[in-house]
Design a protein around this nucleic acid. Structure first.
Length: 566
RNA sequence: UGGGGCGUCGUCAAGUGGUAAGACACAAGACUUUGACUCUUGCAUUCGUAGGUUCGAAUCCUGCCGCCCCAGCCA
């Protein structure tokens, strides 16, 4: 009877507001949220936080829905490839938008009408200043801006010009539609912001239908309104934009979603902006958006993370307004926690050291039964071949071990997991003095891993039969950067802090035969090493494993504290 | 020095006037055929800071200090 881990969703300030709104029957009790990505890159773990929040809230509230809407208002940066990837990622994370899939571009006609309405109300005008002039007229943080000389054009002239913009009569940059608000507002967003610009670029969905495109601020709040979103959840940097959204919505007298801002996710030892991730991809610092070192959803998926691990991670970190920087260990803990119960155990040796068991008959081979999970017998067992020559981990042997080391050393006895006790009798070295092989004896009475005389051994090691093991490549992944916050040093480029050891390819690994038969993407635990899965580049003859995460390693910690000992 | 936010354990984070939850990390111990898992214990006399109100303040008031965001025809 498996006991399912019950993990309740902690209530955060946004959920508290929404619960209160339901109590007050605001919006007739409807809860409609949305996840609004721009299709100009792949989703990352920071987006997962927003996805879990928006879709999570919809799922928690009876009748709640969450839309997936692509904010595709800038055709020069957006591509259909990203749309497909984003949909796949959201689905993979375990969320369902049902038939609520939208695009801001669905609303281009409507948005255009809204703009015309603003012009007719005398609340928007066509400005013919250049980009540089507009910047100049905008003023600074401490000085008010100045009115554009085009600010008082007549409604007729504005209508005419805007139609001309739409009809492609003008070149890019020659005119722009602006909201007429207040050039002296202390909030720069209110200083007559641009709402439509000329962009003679073909759009991934509307093709060449348009040569003017709405700005994000205009399109976003109105798209939310059109979709009848009740709660527009976004990150902190849009707090300053809220007064502008309020202005558009109020002036146009349309449905007014409630915007609530929360802090975006920051994770140690990585960067979290699409722009920077794009640089890593374009500069070939990583092998694509789905490089397992990238904290993109696709990278995490390829690395072997489970959707539940990511969801649990998002639940753990919470939602609040203060700036945050999460320990990488929280993410790591989330996968370990999710994989511990379901993952089968297998044996794989990353850095092999050969052992010859001298008293084991040369021509003998046997199959030993090994449990697939130490705590769950329902997960069964498998037969693993054993013979006179086996491999163990190089790090499991020390010629001159410290007291606390309870693995193999000269004259020491250890247990081979589910196999036999062996004792090291001789160490063979090469001409450089490196240990290349061990000679051992085994105790035939200890078959299965325990001795009838009750003799105890402290160390238990994983092993693979040299005759039967399958050669494999293993990719070890580590943090992408060497410093906690690669963006902290404003004088240096974040790429200066890339970790040269973020990917280590081990191509001399050997795994038990069954491990090579795994399904691609299937997570397993290599005993005493960590969780791994078969990479998509894997081939039956040459399996390639990705290390998802290591196991907790208390020994490594103890070892670290004893300098002079490696 | 304009405007908008935020300051509770190393890192996240509850707490909304009644005497500091939880998670990760860390430390010690138990168990162990994974130095894993699991379990037990410890870990903020104190909530940026200084005053004030109150029987009582992380919570209310005032001043100060610190951090983040905003001057794209990006989102």
């Amino acid at each position: 009877m498996p006991t399912e881990k019950i993990k309740s969703t902690p209530t955060d300030f946004i959920r508290a507001i929404i619960a209160e709104d339901r109590r007050n029957n605001k919006n007739n009790g409807r809860i409609v949220t949305r996840f609004p990505p721009e299709p100009n890159g792949f989703l990352h773990i920071g987006h997962a936080k927003s996805i879990c929040l928006n879709f999570g809230i919809a799922a928690e509230n009876p009748g709640g829905v969450c839309h997936l809407r692509f904010d595709d208002t800038n055709p020069s940066k957006e591509e259909d490839e990203y749309v497909r990837a984003i949909k796949e990622d959201v689905k993979w994370l375990g969320f369902d938008w049902g038939d609520k899939l939208f695009y801001a571009s669905d609303y281009f006609d409507k948005l255009y009408e809204y703009a015309v309405r603003l012009i007719k109300m005398g609340r928007a005008y066509v400005c013919s200043l250049s980009a540089a002039e507009i910047r100049e007229y905008r003023g600074t943080l401490t000085e008010p801006g100045r009115n554009s000389p085009y600010r008082e054009r007549s409604v007729e002239e504005n209508l005419d010009l805007f139609a001309g913009m739409k009809n492609g009569e003008f070149s890019e940059g020659s005119h722009i539609l602006r909201a007429k608000i207040d050039m002296s507002s202390p909030n720069l967003n209110m200083r007559d912001p641009a709402i439509y610009r000329i962009l003679k670029v073909s759009h991934h969905r509307t093709g060449d239908t348009w040569c003017i495109y709405p700005m994000y601020d205009f399109a976003h709040c109105l798209s939310d309104s059109i979709e009848n979103i009740t709660h527009s959840l976004c990150t902190l940097e849009f707090e300053d934009h809220r007064p502008l959204y309020d202005w558009f919505l109020d002036v146009l007298e349309v449905h007014h979603p409630q915007q609530i801002e929360f802090a975006r996710l920051n994770l140690d030892y990585t960067v979290m902006s699409k722009r920077k991730l794009m640089q890593l991809v374009d500069g070939n610092y990583v092998n694509g958006w789905d490089d397992p070192r990238m904290l993109t959803i696709s990278g995490l998926r390829r690395r072997g993370f489970t959707p539940a691990a990511i969801r649990n991670f998002c639940r753990t970190i919470g939602i609040a307004k203060r700036e945050n920087r999460i320990d990488m260990t929280v993410l790591e803990n989330a996968v370990r926690d999710d994989l511990n119960d379901p993952a089968n155990r297998v044996m794989g040796v990353l850095k092999p050291l050969k052992i010859v068991i001298e008293n084991y008959p040369e021509d003998k081979e046997e199959e030993l039964e090994v449990a697939n999970h130490p705590k769950n017998s329902e997960m069964g067992s498998r037969m693993v071949p054993f013979c006179r020559e086996i491999y163990i981990e190089q790090t499991d042997f020390m010629e001159d071990p410290p007291k606390k080391f309870f693995r193999l050393g000269p004259g020491r006895e250890v247990r081979l997991r589910s196999a036999y006790f062996i004792t090291c009798t001789r160490v063979i070295k090469d001409s450089d003095g490196r240990v290349i092989e061990l000679r051992c004896t085994y105790d035939p009475a200890s078959k299965g891993g325990s001795s009838p005389d009750g003799r105890k051994v402290r160390g238990t090691m994983h092993w693979v039969s040299a005759r039967h093991g399958v050669k494999a490549q293993v990719n070890l992944y580590d943090r992408l950067f060497t410093v906690e916050n690669p963006e902290a040093d404003k004088k240096k480029d974040f790429k200066d802090f890339l970790n040269p050891d973020s990917l280590v390819n081990l191509d001399n690994c050997v795994v038990e035969p069954g491990a090579a038969q795994l399904k691609q993407g299937q997570q397993v635990q290599f005993e005493r090493q960590g969780y791994f899965c078969l990479d998509s580049s894997s081939e039956p003859a040459r399996p390639v494993f990705n290390r998802i995460v290591t196991l907790r390693d208390t020994w490594a910690k103890i070892n670290k504290k004893q300098p002079g000992r490696k």
